[in-house]
Design a protein around this nucleic acid. Structure first.
Lengths: 206, 206
DNA sequence: CGTCGAAGTGAGTGACCGATCACTCTCATC
DNA sequence: GATGAGAGTGATCGGTCACTCACTTCGACG
């Protein structure tokens, strides 16, 4: 509420900043606005999934009107795809940080470091939830294509950067998916035996 | 279209069956109708997921009015939960068949046989897709609870029936999740290297 | 036959959502 | 200061959906 004042009621000449008195445009360029909308879309879609999230939700998060969302993107599908692409951007960056931390070590150690970095990245669950929601609507052609593109990036990076065998990379991805299940189904912190079977040894985010 | 004639236009005295001439009630009991609706719900929800599937879709599949669906179940959530429970019923039955086929063998062999039975079960993708959709809406309390209950059954059965270690069972479930990803994202049959990395050695259904 | 409870439905209703459009406001440039 | 292109919005529309309700049909039983 307080962070962004209404542009209408501000008691300054338009385009003048309080602190610096440097001119700052009231309007942004559409090009610079798009990534901000995508960031808001990650938030909104992670919360509600594709169908339960409205374009108005995304617009509210980006502090613009929903009509303008449709001027920045061709439709709701395109907004989701932009969010998903940005999601994989952040995942790749995290994996890279992990790999850097384990430089010059064995393939196994590099994969393990990547897993640790991923576990840390998803301490907030937004990126994880978005992937799960994307999987659920992957039959929408554009979304399926974006999901495959993201998986291709992750898988290829894990393999080339770690130098691990196909089997090791496959196992890495499989346990990533198990981690997704554990989080979405809220299996962590369950005392039951079967829950312990699924979670034992899996890194807890946060 | 042809299988179930409209009850209105049939040229028989009501309640008389063509073949046996044994009286058969036009009306079913609500109790016997519920599983049929659940079966139709598996079909419908597997296709569209929770939010994109309407109660009218389910009703159409069950050949009843949507109003009557709401008399058989307390709401849309309950219909989905019923479908999910039935889904896990069938999965457990398949795992049991697999375990029976590998009786008296090593834990590893039993798990492998279960995996084979599961791969065969999901030749049609409905049961798999329903699980993925359920994962995506697991934050709905009733659905999350049903999902956890199903996973508990599967995990516990795999462990007790195979006698495998926790690590082996965990690996079994992790690769199940990888299989779900491969199917939903349509990674099979892709020629790319990364796709082969994810799919190699995973049993192809059908 | 009559009747009563259960099976089953047609016709809504209120709420909501994606998308569109006409419109205003901003600001760099001349 | 005039102008035009782009930023940004309010209002609205056509359509859909979960859920409700009054109503009809069925069939077991006395």
């Amino acid at each position: 509420m307080s962070g962004a004042q209404s542009r209408r009621n501000v008691a300054l000449k338009s385009g003048e900043c309080i602190v610096t008195h440097m001119p700052r445009p009231v309007l942004s360029s559409a090009e610079s606005r798009r990534p901000l909308v995508a960031a808001a879309a990650i938030d909104a879609f992670a919360r509600g999934g594709f169908h339960a999230t409205t374009v108005a939700d995304v617009a509210r998060g980006a502090k613009i009107s929903s009509a303008y969302v449709f001027k920045l993107f061709s439709g709701k599908n395109a907004v989701f795809v932009a969010a998903l692409e940005r999601c994989f951007d952040e995942i790749l960056a995290a994996l890279e940080r992990g790999a850097d931390a384990a430089e010059e070590q064995s393939a196994d150690a590099v994969l393990d470091a990547m897993g640790a970095a991923y576990a840390q990245l998803i301490a907030d669950r937004r990126l994880l939830l978005l992937q799960v929601h994307a999987q659920s609507v992957a039959d929408v052609p554009e979304i399926g294509a974006a999901l495959r593109a993201g998986l291709a990036r992750v898988t290829s990076f894990a393999k080339t950067r770690s130098g691990a065998t196909d089997d090791e990379v496959q196992r890495f991805m499989a346990f990533g998916q198990l981690c997704h299940l554990i989080v979405t189904a809220q299996i962590w912190d369950l005392p039951d035996d079967w829950a312990k079977t699924l979670t034992h040894g899996v890194r807890h985010p946060g």
